[in-house]
Design a protein around this nucleic acid. Structure first.
Lengths: 207, 207
DNA sequence: GTCTATATAGGGATAGAC
DNA sequence: GTCTATCCCTATATAGAC
């Protein structure tokens, strides 16, 4: 693994663990046992490191945001989609914790993130629409649109929300599952009894 | 107005306008035409200023979170409640922009904010329950609980969300109304036609 | 209560040797 | 590509005069 990649990996880990504002470039270099000068040979600034991490993140989230072919014709498809999205969010959670700050500080970030957010909502809508066509979901267009936005918003801020409401020792993975099921519950009123039972079963297994 | 209060007012304004991390104590003193030394005569640290602002905020939000007697027996009651809450959120919006950061930095903040968030959800649930008893809303307990949490989450993070998705020149007040109607739309599927029409009318007037 | 002056510390970033 | 040494700057906070 090249030094440049190690810097990115280490920075990402420290940012996630301690919050980006609390992690200095010296801190990163120290953790890797390299000199600050070396770090600045590979990156021209701290924001440059963050931007490179963001580009990695953007790649991953975009792969996650390709509309899946709804296969099982059930809420399991939505559940899978949410799992993929939440995984990426967790992996790059520091971005979400300081979203506004970073968007204002780093050029292009705002535009790129806005694009991702729109895609999140759009993909959710496409899945819902497919599920509706298959008779799994029963709701009008406006409701589906509202649900899609709500899914985008919730998947974006759930981690912050859960930091605020849950005990700190609460298991990270549990928080996530909790978020996913919170979203699925939003859709539940528009499902028939068989699908509701399936949600219940998923909840039993994973919550 | 005493200097101490002027410091709080000025700090709040600057924090909101420029983001707390971008506003230094010197910056605040400068804006008020007092010396940094004077500022530190009144507050022992920057975090102390933030904490005092938070206590002000806590007072206001707690007044807003008292369950209203549902009077008009319509969605107008929910609409009024949301307006009161959003007003406070906007007045102290810098807290929401750096929520996690501040909660980790300032003692007690986490505990206090967690309490407020729980109350937000609880109050929303009480209003929904009253509306159900009056026959305005038709949904089971689980759905109402889910809606209440969703209202708490959305009212907390809507400002950040709207910064991310809307154009910067988009009017502040419009963003707010947009958030309120987004929440009302979440409840819409559980209303009868007359109530839906009322939402439509409110939207026409304020959106 | 308010000012001026300053201590202290730490972070971002660069120069130049190896 | 990596290190050492260091510069520069800015932020928090304090000391002591008025």
């Amino acid at each position: 693994m090249k030094t440049k990649d190690r810097i990115i990996a280490t920075a990402l880990r420290l940012f996630n663990e301690e919050g980006e504002p609390n992690v200095t470039t010296n801190h990163i270099a120290d953790e890797m046992d390299i000199s600050p000068g070396n770090l600045y040979y590979h990156f021209k600034s701290k924001d440059d490191i963050i931007w490179q991490i963001f580009l990695q993140y953007e790649n991953k989230i975009q792969s996650a945001l390709i509309t899946p072919e709804v296969e099982s014709a059930s809420m399991k498809d939505m559940w899978l989609y949410l799992n993929v999205v939440f995984d990426v969010v967790v992996e790059y959670r520091f971005l979400y914790r300081n979203l506004i700050q970073l968007m204002n500080r780093i050029e292009f970030m705002k535009r790129h993130f806005r694009h991702i957010l729109a895609k999140k909502s759009q993909t959710a809508l496409e899945i819902l629409t497919q599920l509706k066509a298959l008779g799994v979901v029963d709701a009008d267009e406006a409701t589906l649109g509202n649900l899609a936005d709500q899914i985008a918003l919730t998947s974006t801020f759930w981690l912050n929300y859960s930091i605020a409401i849950f005990d700190d020792q609460f298991d990270e993975q549990k928080k996530l599952s909790h978020g996913i099921f919170h979203i699925l519950q939003m859709i539940a009123p528009f499902l028939d009894d068989r699908q509701k039972a399936m949600l219940h079963e998923l909840a039993r297994q994973f919550l």
